[in-house]
Design a protein around this nucleic acid. Structure first.
Lengths: 225, 225
DNA sequence: ATCTTAAAGCAACAGATGTCGCACTAGTGG
DNA sequence: CCACTAGTGCGACATCTGTTGCTTTAAGAT
């Protein structure tokens, strides 16, 4: 996850994901060499550090540039604004190897997942929370956020597949809906409602979703009977 | 809901909800008279109008002041910042007489509620969405938002009470958890995940919650058998 | 009517934020 | 080794955002 400065990553991503100024076919890849990649790594590291220290509120282009040892103008030119920075961070966040833990039961898996979510959301300052805040302000960050959600929920579908394999769930189950039903109350209460975190909430939400699933709430074609 | 300019409202609210500069007991109420109230009404109307036209992104103190026909400084002094403005708007929003519609069944009531929610969230620009965005940036707006959520969910508890009265649910049912389970997927998908609105989502989320409730997912003390 | 004073208007200022042209540095290719 | 140039550094500038001291207006009381 953490980029090692000085060891340029080989990903030749167009930095901010913005449309490039039309490479004229003679320049297939602009200049993926040392300095460019190094600056990108420094800046993204700085963003994560600033986010961890001051949260989204305290995240400013000025501060990021200073911490990265880079000039303001460079950041503005490559990432445009704070939203662009976070979009890049979000894309990088999707490149880890996270996967849901296997506890042996659907309810256990969902509870473990919810525990992880709750933990990441109650931390102060919370990076995921900051990224959600950013998604409200920047279209680019919102798109990156969407990609990350999609990736995460796709990985979580293995939870449902395992449950189907164990016979806990019917084969044709809408995995995505089940996962959302299980996790949504957490985000709703912790992020939107702003209620105090309840240590039993993760388990309760997971249990509710499990019960609904057992009652056939997420059956796909519902063969009626 | 809409304030009629020129007809000062009698609510002697301390405007922004901020701690007042200690009234010296000789001045029990500062100056609730015409101009003060009129300015407040003008400004709040301007906020709602700007929000409807440009969304949260385009909401600026400068624009609000101009539209309200008031000087910038006045807005800064009474509301401090955009968050303060929205907090005041949020508090005013809680003073309506909204109540959940009665369709005759738990599932129907929850579906109707979700339909209303979805409708308010897919509108562009969406005022509720703007208020949520504001809650991320301003502590004052966040508190006001919290008060509004609390008020809304409290009113919705009548849905559960009616269902209990009809014998659809056991007497000891955790109304709040049921309501959150029913509504959270909507907010999660439309606000956080940013997925395209699905016209059947409200009904499906309501059905899921109803099934879970029937399975005893929201029983309060659970007398064990 | 007139006095008092809370609140609004006004203008000048300070700081943050973002932009632009130009110079320079350092990969890249000959 | 040298030439080329994408990308960065630098400083000057424009703008937006928020603050402060003072003046003016008008609500409320005598």
């Amino acid at each position: 996850m953490t980029h090692t400065p000085g060891q340029p990553d080989s990903r030749a991503v167009p930095a901010g994901g913005r449309p490039e100024p039309v490479p004229c076919a003679t320049t297939p890849e602009r200049r993926p060499g040392g300095r460019t990649a190094r600056v990108r790594a420094q800046v993204l590291d700085a963003v994560r550090a600033e986010l961890g220290e001051h949260g989204y509120e305290g995240l400013t282009v000025e501060g990021v540039a200073a911490r990265a040892g880079v000039h303001r103008t460079t950041v503005y030119r490559r990432w445009e604004d704070v939203g662009g920075l976070l979009a890049d961070v979000l894309d990088a966040a999707g490149e880890d190897d996270w996967e849901p833990t296997d506890t042996g039961s659907l309810r256990g898996d969902l509870t473990a997942l919810n525990d992880e979510i709750q933990e990441s959301l109650v931390a102060r300052p919370s990076v995921p929370r900051a990224l959600m805040a950013a998604a409200f302000r920047s279209a680019r960050a919102a798109e990156a956020q969407q990609r990350l959600w999609e990736d995460r929920y796709a990985r979580c579908e293995t939870i449902v597949e395992r449950a189907v394999g164990r016979g806990e769930l019917p084969a044709r189950t809408d995995a995505r809906s089940l996962l959302i039903a299980s996790t949504a109350p957490l985000y709703h209460q912790l992020v939107l409602l702003g209620t105090a975190p309840d240590p039993r909430l993760p388990a309760r939400a997971a249990t509710t979703a499990t019960l609904a699933a057992a009652a056939g709430a997420f059956g796909l074609p519902v063969p009626e009977e």
